[in-house]
Design a protein around this nucleic acid. Sequence first.
DNA 1: GTGGCCCTACGACAGCCGTGGTAGCTTTTT
DNA 2: AAAAAGCTACCACGGCTGTCGTAGGGCCAC
Lengths: 127, 127
Amino acid sequence: MSKTTIRLTRFELEVMEELWGIGQGSVREVLEALPTRRRPAYTTVQTIVRRLEEKGAVEQVRKIGNAHIYRPRVSRKAAYRRLVDDFLDLFGGSARPLVAHLAESGKLSLEDLRQAEELLVGEPESA
Amino acid sequence: MSKTTIRLTRFELEVMEELWGIGQGSVREVLEALPTRRRPAYTTVQTIVRRLEEKGAVEQVRKIGNAHIYRPRVSRKAAYRRLVDDFLDLFGGSARPLVAHLAESGKLSLEDLRQAEELLVGEPESA
DNA sequence: GTGGCCCTACGACAGCCGTGGTAGCTTTTT
DNA sequence: AAAAAGCTACCACGGCTGTCGTAGGGCCAC
Protein backbone atom coordinates (compact mmCIF):
# COMPACT_ATOMS: atom_id res chain seq x y z
CA MET A 1 0.00 0.00 0.00
CA SER A 2 1.32 3.35 -0.96
CA LYS A 3 0.72 5.37 2.17
CA THR A 4 3.84 7.28 1.35
CA THR A 5 2.26 9.80 -0.92
CA ILE A 6 0.35 12.81 0.19
CA ARG A 7 -3.32 12.45 0.98
CA LEU A 8 -5.53 14.88 -0.88
CA THR A 9 -9.03 15.96 -0.03
CA ARG A 10 -11.79 16.14 -2.55
CA PHE A 11 -11.33 19.77 -3.38
CA GLU A 12 -7.58 19.60 -3.26
CA LEU A 13 -7.87 16.89 -5.82
CA GLU A 14 -10.00 19.06 -8.05
CA VAL A 15 -7.44 21.81 -7.90
CA MET A 16 -4.63 19.39 -8.63
CA GLU A 17 -6.64 18.07 -11.51
CA GLU A 18 -6.57 21.49 -13.12
CA LEU A 19 -2.88 21.88 -12.46
CA TRP A 20 -2.14 18.50 -13.97
CA GLY A 21 -4.23 19.55 -16.90
CA ILE A 22 -2.47 22.79 -17.63
CA GLY A 23 0.91 21.73 -16.36
CA GLN A 24 1.36 24.76 -14.19
CA GLY A 25 -0.51 27.90 -13.42
CA SER A 26 -1.54 30.68 -11.13
CA VAL A 27 -4.36 30.69 -8.66
CA ARG A 28 -6.48 32.60 -11.10
CA GLU A 29 -5.82 30.18 -13.89
CA VAL A 30 -6.84 27.31 -11.68
CA LEU A 31 -9.94 29.15 -10.64
CA GLU A 32 -10.96 29.79 -14.19
CA ALA A 33 -10.23 26.27 -15.23
CA LEU A 34 -12.73 24.97 -12.70
CA PRO A 35 -16.16 24.07 -14.04
CA THR A 36 -18.48 27.00 -13.62
CA ARG A 37 -20.84 25.02 -11.45
CA ARG A 38 -18.51 24.50 -8.59
CA ARG A 39 -16.37 27.57 -8.83
CA PRO A 40 -15.78 29.02 -5.40
CA ALA A 41 -14.33 32.37 -4.39
CA TYR A 42 -10.84 33.30 -5.47
CA THR A 43 -9.54 33.15 -1.94
CA THR A 44 -10.94 29.69 -1.47
CA VAL A 45 -8.82 28.39 -4.28
CA GLN A 46 -5.94 30.37 -2.92
CA THR A 47 -6.30 28.71 0.45
CA ILE A 48 -6.39 25.28 -1.10
CA VAL A 49 -3.31 26.02 -3.14
CA ARG A 50 -1.53 27.27 -0.05
CA ARG A 51 -2.42 24.09 1.81
CA LEU A 52 -1.25 22.05 -1.14
CA GLU A 53 2.03 23.86 -0.97
CA GLU A 54 2.36 23.26 2.76
CA LYS A 55 1.75 19.59 2.10
CA GLY A 56 4.33 19.56 -0.63
CA ALA A 57 1.86 18.65 -3.33
CA VAL A 58 2.72 21.71 -5.39
CA GLU A 59 5.57 24.16 -5.57
CA GLN A 60 6.10 27.68 -6.77
CA VAL A 61 8.16 27.78 -9.90
CA ARG A 62 8.26 31.46 -10.69
CA LYS A 63 6.32 34.67 -10.55
CA ILE A 64 4.48 36.53 -13.23
CA GLY A 65 3.88 40.03 -12.05
CA ASN A 66 3.29 39.42 -8.42
CA ALA A 67 1.42 36.19 -8.97
CA HIS A 68 2.96 32.85 -8.09
CA ILE A 69 2.97 30.10 -10.64
CA TYR A 70 2.48 26.65 -9.17
CA ARG A 71 3.41 23.27 -10.47
CA PRO A 72 2.42 19.82 -9.17
CA ARG A 73 5.05 17.94 -7.24
CA VAL A 74 3.10 14.72 -7.16
CA SER A 75 1.86 12.83 -10.14
CA ARG A 76 -1.78 12.26 -10.81
CA LYS A 77 -1.15 8.59 -10.61
CA ALA A 78 0.50 8.73 -7.23
CA ALA A 79 -2.28 10.88 -5.87
CA TYR A 80 -4.96 8.53 -7.06
CA ARG A 81 -3.02 5.59 -5.79
CA ARG A 82 -3.14 7.03 -2.33
CA LEU A 83 -6.77 7.93 -2.66
CA VAL A 84 -7.73 4.47 -3.78
CA ASP A 85 -5.57 2.76 -1.19
CA ASP A 86 -7.24 4.67 1.58
CA PHE A 87 -10.61 3.80 0.18
CA LEU A 88 -9.72 0.16 -0.15
CA ASP A 89 -9.03 0.08 3.56
CA LEU A 90 -12.77 0.23 4.00
CA PHE A 91 -12.93 -3.03 2.11
CA GLY A 92 -10.27 -4.72 4.13
CA GLY A 93 -7.54 -3.41 1.87
CA SER A 94 -8.43 -5.60 -1.06
CA ALA A 95 -9.82 -4.49 -4.37
CA ARG A 96 -11.80 -7.62 -4.92
CA PRO A 97 -14.83 -6.90 -2.76
CA LEU A 98 -15.00 -3.47 -4.28
CA VAL A 99 -15.02 -4.73 -7.82
CA ALA A 100 -17.49 -7.39 -6.81
CA HIS A 101 -19.76 -4.73 -5.44
CA LEU A 102 -19.42 -2.69 -8.60
CA ALA A 103 -20.31 -5.68 -10.71
CA GLU A 104 -23.27 -6.65 -8.56
CA SER A 105 -24.69 -3.19 -8.57
CA GLY A 106 -24.43 -2.92 -12.31
CA LYS A 107 -21.88 -0.16 -12.38
CA LEU A 108 -19.56 -2.12 -14.60
CA SER A 109 -20.04 -3.27 -18.12
CA LEU A 110 -18.36 -6.24 -19.66
CA GLU A 111 -16.46 -3.80 -21.74
CA ASP A 112 -15.13 -2.09 -18.65
CA LEU A 113 -13.86 -5.41 -17.39
CA ARG A 114 -12.31 -6.28 -20.67
CA GLN A 115 -10.47 -3.02 -20.80
CA ALA A 116 -9.20 -3.61 -17.30
CA GLU A 117 -8.05 -7.03 -18.33
CA GLU A 118 -6.06 -5.62 -21.17
CA LEU A 119 -4.41 -3.13 -18.89
CA LEU A 120 -3.58 -5.96 -16.56
CA VAL A 121 -1.98 -8.05 -19.21
CA GLY A 122 -0.12 -5.17 -20.72
CA GLU A 123 1.32 -4.13 -17.41
CA PRO A 124 2.04 -7.08 -15.22
CA GLU A 125 3.95 -5.07 -12.65
CA SER A 126 2.85 -6.01 -9.21
CA ALA A 127 1.91 -3.42 -6.59
CA MET B 1 -26.77 7.05 -8.27
CA SER B 2 -28.15 6.08 -4.95
CA LYS B 3 -27.74 9.25 -2.98
CA THR B 4 -30.90 8.32 -1.20
CA THR B 5 -29.33 6.16 1.43
CA ILE B 6 -27.60 7.39 4.47
CA ARG B 7 -23.96 8.33 4.27
CA LEU B 8 -21.79 6.58 6.80
CA THR B 9 -18.37 7.62 8.02
CA ARG B 10 -15.51 5.22 8.38
CA PHE B 11 -16.10 4.42 11.99
CA GLU B 12 -19.85 4.36 11.64
CA LEU B 13 -19.32 1.78 8.97
CA GLU B 14 -17.19 -0.33 11.27
CA VAL B 15 -19.86 -0.25 13.91
CA MET B 16 -22.54 -1.13 11.38
CA GLU B 17 -20.35 -3.94 10.18
CA GLU B 18 -20.51 -5.50 13.62
CA LEU B 19 -24.23 -5.01 13.85
CA TRP B 20 -24.76 -6.59 10.47
CA GLY B 21 -22.58 -9.42 11.64
CA ILE B 22 -24.46 -10.19 14.83
CA GLY B 23 -27.84 -9.07 13.58
CA GLN B 24 -28.50 -6.90 16.58
CA GLY B 25 -26.78 -6.01 19.79
CA SER B 26 -25.97 -3.63 22.58
CA VAL B 27 -23.26 -1.03 22.65
CA ARG B 28 -21.12 -3.37 24.69
CA GLU B 29 -21.55 -6.20 22.27
CA VAL B 30 -20.50 -3.98 19.42
CA LEU B 31 -17.54 -2.79 21.37
CA GLU B 32 -16.39 -6.29 22.10
CA ALA B 33 -16.95 -7.39 18.55
CA LEU B 34 -14.50 -4.78 17.33
CA PRO B 35 -10.97 -5.97 16.60
CA THR B 36 -8.79 -5.40 19.63
CA ARG B 37 -6.45 -3.14 17.71
CA ARG B 38 -8.92 -0.41 17.03
CA ARG B 39 -11.15 -0.73 20.05
CA PRO B 40 -11.95 2.71 21.39
CA ALA B 41 -13.58 3.69 24.66
CA TYR B 42 -17.04 2.45 25.48
CA THR B 43 -18.49 5.92 25.25
CA THR B 44 -16.98 6.43 21.83
CA VAL B 45 -18.92 3.50 20.48
CA GLN B 46 -21.93 4.76 22.33
CA THR B 47 -21.64 8.14 20.64
CA ILE B 48 -21.35 6.55 17.23
CA VAL B 49 -24.37 4.38 17.87
CA ARG B 50 -26.34 7.38 19.01
CA ARG B 51 -25.39 9.26 15.86
CA LEU B 52 -26.37 6.25 13.81
CA GLU B 53 -29.71 6.29 15.49
CA GLU B 54 -30.18 9.99 14.81
CA LYS B 55 -29.39 9.31 11.18
CA GLY B 56 -31.85 6.47 11.09
CA ALA B 57 -29.24 3.87 10.31
CA VAL B 58 -30.11 1.81 13.36
CA GLU B 59 -33.06 1.55 15.70
CA GLN B 60 -33.67 0.37 19.23
CA VAL B 61 -35.60 -2.85 19.29
CA ARG B 62 -35.78 -3.61 23.00
CA LYS B 63 -33.97 -3.36 26.26
CA ILE B 64 -32.08 -5.94 28.20
CA GLY B 65 -31.60 -4.73 31.72
CA ASN B 66 -31.18 -1.06 31.09
CA ALA B 67 -29.21 -1.54 27.93
CA HIS B 68 -30.67 -0.77 24.53
CA ILE B 69 -30.47 -3.35 21.82
CA TYR B 70 -29.90 -1.91 18.36
CA ARG B 71 -30.64 -3.28 14.94
CA PRO B 72 -29.57 -1.98 11.54
CA ARG B 73 -32.19 -0.20 9.54
CA VAL B 74 -30.12 -0.06 6.39
CA SER B 75 -28.67 -3.00 4.59
CA ARG B 76 -24.99 -3.50 4.17
CA LYS B 77 -25.49 -3.38 0.48
CA ALA B 78 -27.29 -0.08 0.51
CA ALA B 79 -24.66 1.43 2.75
CA TYR B 80 -21.82 0.35 0.52
CA ARG B 81 -23.69 1.49 -2.51
CA ARG B 82 -23.79 4.97 -1.12
CA LEU B 83 -20.18 4.80 -0.07
CA VAL B 84 -19.02 3.69 -3.47
CA ASP B 85 -21.22 6.15 -5.29
CA ASP B 86 -19.75 9.03 -3.35
CA PHE B 87 -16.29 7.76 -4.09
CA LEU B 88 -17.01 7.35 -7.75
CA ASP B 89 -17.85 11.02 -7.91
CA LEU B 90 -14.14 11.62 -7.60
CA PHE B 91 -13.76 9.72 -10.84
CA GLY B 92 -16.44 11.59 -12.65
CA GLY B 93 -19.12 9.24 -11.45
CA SER B 94 -18.01 6.33 -13.56
CA ALA B 95 -16.53 3.09 -12.33
CA ARG B 96 -14.41 2.59 -15.37
CA PRO B 97 -11.50 4.89 -14.55
CA LEU B 98 -11.40 3.42 -11.08
CA VAL B 99 -11.19 -0.13 -12.32
CA ALA B 100 -8.65 0.97 -14.87
CA HIS B 101 -6.55 2.45 -12.13
CA LEU B 102 -6.84 -0.69 -10.08
CA ALA B 103 -5.75 -2.78 -13.00
CA GLU B 104 -2.84 -0.53 -13.88
CA SER B 105 -1.57 -0.45 -10.36
CA GLY B 106 -1.68 -4.18 -10.06
CA LYS B 107 -4.33 -4.33 -7.41
CA LEU B 108 -6.47 -6.66 -9.44
CA SER B 109 -5.80 -10.18 -10.52
CA LEU B 110 -7.29 -11.81 -13.55
CA GLU B 111 -9.20 -13.95 -11.17
CA ASP B 112 -10.74 -10.92 -9.56
CA LEU B 113 -11.91 -9.74 -12.94
CA ARG B 114 -13.28 -13.07 -13.86
CA GLN B 115 -15.26 -13.25 -10.67
CA ALA B 116 -16.64 -9.81 -11.36
CA GLU B 117 -17.60 -10.92 -14.81
CA GLU B 118 -19.53 -13.82 -13.44
CA LEU B 119 -21.39 -11.60 -11.05
CA LEU B 120 -22.19 -9.34 -13.94
CA VAL B 121 -23.57 -12.09 -16.07
CA GLY B 122 -25.51 -13.61 -13.23
CA GLU B 123 -27.12 -10.31 -12.35
CA PRO B 124 -27.77 -8.23 -15.40
CA GLU B 125 -29.81 -5.62 -13.54
CA SER B 126 -28.79 -2.21 -14.63
CA ALA B 127 -27.96 0.59 -12.22
C1' DG C 1 2.96 59.36 -10.17
C1' DT C 2 -1.19 57.97 -8.76
C1' DG C 3 -5.50 55.43 -8.90
C1' DG C 4 -7.33 51.10 -9.51
C1' DC C 5 -6.90 46.43 -9.78
C1' DC C 6 -4.88 42.13 -8.66
C1' DC C 7 -2.29 39.25 -5.73
C1' DT C 8 -0.61 37.60 -1.37
C1' DA C 9 -0.63 36.49 3.50
C1' DC C 10 -3.27 35.49 7.17
C1' DG C 11 -7.20 34.91 9.99
C1' DA C 12 -11.69 33.16 10.89
C1' DC C 13 -15.38 30.05 11.16
C1' DA C 14 -18.73 26.41 10.98
C1' DG C 15 -19.71 21.57 10.17
C1' DC C 16 -18.19 16.95 10.49
C1' DC C 17 -15.81 13.22 12.88
C1' DG C 18 -13.24 10.61 16.12
C1' DT C 19 -12.58 10.61 20.76
C1' DG C 20 -13.78 10.41 25.40
C1' DG C 21 -15.31 12.44 30.09
C1' DT C 22 -19.06 13.20 33.68
C1' DA C 23 -23.27 12.80 36.13
C1' DG C 24 -26.79 10.31 37.37
C1' DC C 25 -30.05 6.46 37.10
C1' DT C 26 -30.57 1.20 37.10
C1' DT C 27 -29.41 -3.29 37.98
C1' DT C 28 -26.87 -6.49 40.24
C1' DT C 29 -24.20 -8.14 43.89
C1' DT C 30 -22.90 -8.63 48.51
C1' DA D 1 -30.23 -2.04 52.07
C1' DA D 2 -25.96 -0.42 50.76
C1' DA D 3 -22.24 -0.78 47.69
C1' DA D 4 -20.53 -1.91 43.15
C1' DA D 5 -20.91 -2.12 38.38
C1' DG D 6 -23.10 -0.97 34.18
C1' DC D 7 -25.75 1.94 31.14
C1' DT D 8 -27.60 6.24 29.30
C1' DA D 9 -27.73 11.06 28.09
C1' DC D 10 -25.16 14.87 27.26
C1' DC D 11 -21.22 17.74 26.76
C1' DA D 12 -16.71 18.88 25.16
C1' DC D 13 -12.97 19.26 22.19
C1' DG D 14 -9.48 19.19 18.71
C1' DG D 15 -8.30 18.27 13.91
C1' DC D 16 -9.68 18.53 9.22
C1' DT D 17 -12.15 20.80 5.31
C1' DG D 18 -14.56 23.95 2.66
C1' DT D 19 -15.50 28.51 2.67
C1' DC D 20 -14.50 33.22 2.66
C1' DG D 21 -13.01 38.18 4.37
C1' DT D 22 -9.64 41.71 5.22
C1' DA D 23 -5.40 44.15 5.10
C1' DG D 24 -1.75 45.43 2.73
C1' DG D 25 1.61 45.43 -0.93
C1' DG D 26 2.82 45.49 -6.03
C1' DC D 27 1.98 46.54 -10.96
C1' DC D 28 0.06 48.75 -14.86
C1' DA D 29 -2.42 52.13 -17.44
C1' DC D 30 -3.21 56.55 -17.79
